[in-house]
Design a protein around this nucleic acid. Structure first.
Lengths: 295, 295
DNA sequence: CCTGATCTTTGACTAAAGTCAAAGAAGTAT
DNA sequence: ATACTTCTTTGACTTTAGTCAAAGATCAGG
């Protein structure tokens, strides 16, 4: 892995300092107004109803602390706390009408703040800022996603494949039969691999590698959760799969794609894949690609 | 003023949320380690010695609170507090060797964190991130700078002009005589104006408008503090000066520039100024420009 | 030299934020 | 049914962060 240049580190740190001190601090100050910041944040996060468990994870709070804060908000009539229908140990928090009003007010204030800031710029500069922030956020998210090898039968792996199947079932005019998914044993061990991408602990993408014939691997089921698209994650999954293939001694990887997945086709071409004749009987495939792995 | 588009507000707010939650929070958590965050920050800000007064302003802390924290750091042997040589009411704080060690450790940790984040990206992506963050920070700073009309004799105005004079005295091969600066009365009232740009309360730029002849104003002394260059502030000052000129009934504004200020010349051209023949006897001028104000 | 402002220190508080451990209730796996 | 785990609640704390006012020391300007 290449060393990280000092310039990049400096810029990131300088930005961090500037941003958290100047913008973040302001925001916090305004968000709460006449309410402790912790409660204001909690209220905001509750939104359309979440379990306390989820909140605990998301905000990284102590269980006791959270419980008390949530109950305090309940006492103020801002949230309603109910028992989770599927697991009676858990509690669900949701906003009452009064809570919604309060959150709306929070949003109004935060918008006002953002507008005040943007007012200091000309319209083209606003556009530049939006673009820069959007691009920075995309890259920061991508940097925070880790791609890991998991067992093909692991719950996260199955969850991804299920989501993948549902996704393309909707996208393919002819639908998709989950029976054509890879079997767990094909993507484990010496000849295959299953990768899952995690963002803050949540699986947001996957990809599978299996053996096709001697020296030839096949990449299948490269999928990215809708929330994590347009970050460049598919490319990263593809890279990681190729590395797995190399490790397993494959010199060539192949893959096929459905006619409707035009962005995917473009990505494969951009990543060095060349179109080849049909190599399998996959009824969903319309194009077949191959890449010779450099070392 | 144009309304701020919702898209821009949303992007800014989304970024703010993501960044403060994910990066800022992490950083804070690591920075302190076994020390309260307030003290850690204070230590960091002390750096190579500052007065408590300065720190109070910079960090926005209560005087009593700051005093106690500083004394606590002194008791821990991390800072030395001495009496200000020029004003015995004030105190100066500087790091002891132990304090330097601690700050270095802070920096090491923060760098490590930034590196960890950047490691998740390919080198070209790191470059993109650096560029996006740099550009975002530039624009955010620019947005936070306010340009105000002040009296030509105000301390901030004089301070800017002094800095301007010192700056160009160094830059012009022939030096610069401060006697050629505008007089306060020329840049006040109905026929002139003096603008100062403030960043977080600190003057970081200026510009003057005075009467040349009927219907013609002259822009002079457009200057930006070295810390605030490359943000687009000169352009903003120029815009604001033109608005002042229009308000005062001038249809034309003129200005001159020194031969050595090539970036300034380029900016004037880009802002709609056209070169004209010499219109004054300014010994420092090599180029003369004019712009007809629209509206 | 006097007056009013500035800077720091101290005392006396308060509120927010967070920690830790114990216990009860409810799931899950065997 | 049993053992183990998870989720929430409660009690009992501690630390941080911050506010406010009063007082003492020192400056700056007239």
């Amino acid at each position: 892995m290449e060393p990280v240049s000092a310039e990049h580190v400096t810029t990131l740190r300088r930005f961090n300092r500037y941003f958290t001190r100047r913008i973040g601090a302001l925001d916090d100050h305004y968000l709460g107004q006449d309410r402790p910041l912790g409660e204001a944040r909690l209220l905001f996060e509750i939104g359309d109803g979440v379990s306390l468990r989820e909140l605990r994870g998301r905000l990284g709070l102590d269980a006791g602390y959270l419980s008390r804060m949530a109950r305090a908000l309940e006492a103020q009539g801002l949230v309603r706390i109910t028992v989770h229908p599927k697991d009676t140990r858990q509690r669900l928090a949701e906003l009452t009408p009064a809570g919604h009003v309060e959150v709306k007010e929070q949003n109004r204030r935060a918008n006002h703040l953002a507008e005040g800031l943007l007012k200091g710029l000309t319209p083209p500069q606003r556009g530049q800022l939006t673009e820069a922030l959007g691009s920075a956020q995309r890259l920061l998210r991508l940097a925070a996603i880790s791609v890991e090898v998991v067992d093909g039968a692991a719950p996260d792996a199955r969850a991804c494949l299920d989501a993948y199947a549902a996704d393309i079932d909707e996208r393919f005019p002819e639908g998709f039969d989950p029976a054509s998914l890879v079997r767990p044993h094909e993507v484990s061990g010496d000849t295959g691999a299953f990768l899952v991408a995690y963002e803050e602990g949540r699986p947001v993408g996957c990809g599978a590698l299996r053996r096709l014939e001697a020296g030839v691997g096949e990449i299948r089921h490269v999928w990215v959760h809708p929330d994590a698209r347009r970050l460049g994650l598919a490319r990263r999954l593809l890279d990681a799969l190729e590395r797995q293939a190399t490790q397993r001694g494959y010199e060539i990887v192949r893959l096929d794609t459905h006619a409707s997945l035009t962005e995917a086709q473009a990505m494969y071409r951009a990543c060095g894949y060349a179109e080849i004749p049909r190599y399998d009987a996959n009824v969903y495939a319309a194009y077949w690609f191959e890449k010779r792995l450099g070392r």
